[in-house]
Design a protein around this nucleic acid. Structure first.
Lengths: 242, 242
DNA sequence: GGCCCTATGACATGGCCGTGACATTCGTTA
DNA sequence: TAACGAATGTCACGGCCATGTCATAGGGCC
C-alpha cells in the first residue's frame, strides 16, 4: 500500500488491546494511525496533529469522548469524528451527534463494518456532496453562457456542446466557484480536492485548469474566466469582461 | 404529518404503560400503530395485518420475541422487526439477528433514539411503497421504449421482451429513476436499497447495474441510460441521446 | 432436493489521472 | 529594450485502479 494519499487516523481508546487491534487493521488498509489512551492526550494530539479522522471512544479516562469532541469543535477543528460506544446507553447516539460527531458505532462491532464506516467518512468528496445537499442553486454553476451541474456531473458549454465532467474536474471547478474572484492557491486546491499531504507534482493542477479552459473558455489561450495569477494560483472570474 | 402513505406499525410489548407511550409518540410522528401485549396475539396480528414494521419486545408472556420473529419468518413474512430488550444480555443482539430481526434497541432507551431507528428502518421501504401508492404514473417508468412497472415487477423492454424484475432490481431501478440525470453514489444505493447497517461488498451494486443494462440497453456494452461516472457512481439518463 | 435470487471473488479491460518533456509566456535585471 | 530564469501552458504516454463481466457459492423458499 504505497498510496501517497495516505489518510491519517487518530484512535482514542483506553483499551490498549482493542486500540492496537484497530490500528493494526487500519494500517493493513493503508491508513496511517496513531493512538491515544485517554481523553486528555487524545485531545492534544487531535489539536496538533493533522488528522483526517478521529475514532473516539466514549468512555475514557480523564475526559470522556463527548467532551473531547466538543473541545475540538470549540477550537475550530472540524476533523470528522467516529464515536465508539458500549451498547446499553441509548442516549449515546444522540449525545454523540450533539457533541458534533459524524458517525457512531456501538461496541462490539464487526471489523468489516468498522472499516466500511471509516471509508465512507474519509471519502474526499463528502464536502462536495454535502455542499449540494440543501440549496438547489448551489448544485449549479452558471457563468458566461456556460452551465455546470454538480449533481449530474454534466456541463453545457456556451457553444452548445455537452461535456461529462470527471470527479476531479467537478471538484476543482467547485472549489474555484466557491471563491469567485478570489485567488485560489494550488495548495488550496490540492488540499481540498486531493486531501492533506498529497502533493501530486505541480503540473497536475495545471492540467485540470487546462481542461476546464478547453471546455468553458471561448479561447483557451486567452482565458477570461480561469485566470492565472503567476506564482500564486488561479482565479475564477464568473463575469468575463467584454 | 399528513402523509398519504402512512406507515403501519405494530408494537408488541407487555408493559401496557410503555406500549401506550410508544404508540402515542409514534402516532405523533404520523405513524399508524396497533399494540399487542403478548407474543401469541402479536404473532397473529403480525401475520394478518399488513404492517411496515414490528416493534417486538424480547421478554413477553406466552411466547418470547425471538420465537415470534422466527415464526413470522417461517410463515414467509418479511416485515422488518425492531427488537427491544432489557439491557444486560450481550447475546441478545446476535440472537435477534439470527431470529431474523433488523435492528435492536436496549431498554431503557431514549425516545429520540427510538424514533431515529424507526425512521431508519422504515426509510428503506417507505419510499418504495409510498411511491406506488397513489399516482398510477409513478408506479411506472417509461424511457426509450422501455417500460417498467413497479407494482407488478414486470418490465417490457424495447425489443418486445418481457422480464420479471426481482426486488433489488426494481428498487435500484427506482432509486435511479427518482433522480433522473443525477449521479447516484454506490453508498446512496446501498443505503436506500439495502438499508443502513447492511453493506454488501462493492461488486454487488455493479452486478445489478449490469443486469439492468442487459434488460434495457440496446447495447449493454455501450450504455446510454445507465451511465457510469467513474469514482462516483451511476447516472440514469432517461433520454438516450441520439 | 431443486429453484430462484443474491452475494462474492477472479479476471479482464478501459479510462482517469499523474508525470515528464518541451514550448511559451511573464517578470526581472541590467 | 533585450536577455535570462522561472513559472505556466500544453501534450502525449503509461500505470493503476475502478469498473465490467462472468461463474460460482450460499441461502431462503417451495
Amino acid at each position: 500500500m504505497s498510496e501517497a494519499a495516505q489518510s491519517r487516523i487518530l484512535v482514542v481508546e483506553d483499551d490498549l488491546h482493542l486500540a492496537e487491534g484497530m490500528a493494526e487493521n487500519m494500517r493493513a488498509e493503508g491508513y496511517a494511525t496513531d493512538t491515544a489512551h485517554d481523553g486528555q492526550l487524545g485531545l492534544e494530539m487531535a489539536l496538533v496533529g493533522d488528522y483526517d479522522l478521529i475514532v473516539l471512544d466514549v468512555m475514557l479516562p480523564q475526559m470522556d469522548g463527548f467532551e473531547v469532541c466538543k473541545a475540538l469543535r470549540a477550537q475550530g477543528k472540524s476533523t470528522p469524528v467516529l464515536f465508539l460506544t458500549a451498547r446499553g446507553d441509548p442516549q449515546d447516539r444522540v449525545r454523540g451527534l450533539e457533541a458534533g460527531g459524524d458517525d457512531y458505532l456501538t461496541k462490539p462491532f464487526h471489523l468489516d463494518e468498522f472499516l466500511l464506516r471509516i471509508r465512507a467518512i474519509l471519502r474526499r468528496w463528502e464536502w462536495f456532496k454535502s455542499s449540494l445537499a440543501k440549496p438547489a442553486t448551489s448544485a449549479t454553476l452558471t457563468f458566461a453562457g456556460n452551465e455546470a451541474n454538480f449533481r449530474t456531473f454534466q456541463a453545457h458549454a456556451w457553444d452548445g456542446t455537452t461535456h461529462d465532467l470527471t470527479e476531479k474536474e467537478a471538484m476543482i471547478l467547485k472549489v474555484l466557484a466557491e471563491h469567485p474572484g478570489e485567488v485560489v492557491t494550488r495548495d488550496d486546491l490540492l488540499e481540498k480536492v486531493w486531501g492533506y499531504e498529497v502533493y501530486p507534482s505541480t503540473r497536475t493542477v495545471d492540467n485540470f485548469i487546462l481542461r476546464l479552459r478547453k471546455i468553458f473558455e471561448r479561447d483557451p489561450h486567452e482565458p477570461r474566466h480561469f485566470l492565472t495569477v503567476r506564482g500564486v494560483g488561479y482565479r475564477f472570474q464568473p463575469e468575463g469582461d467584454a
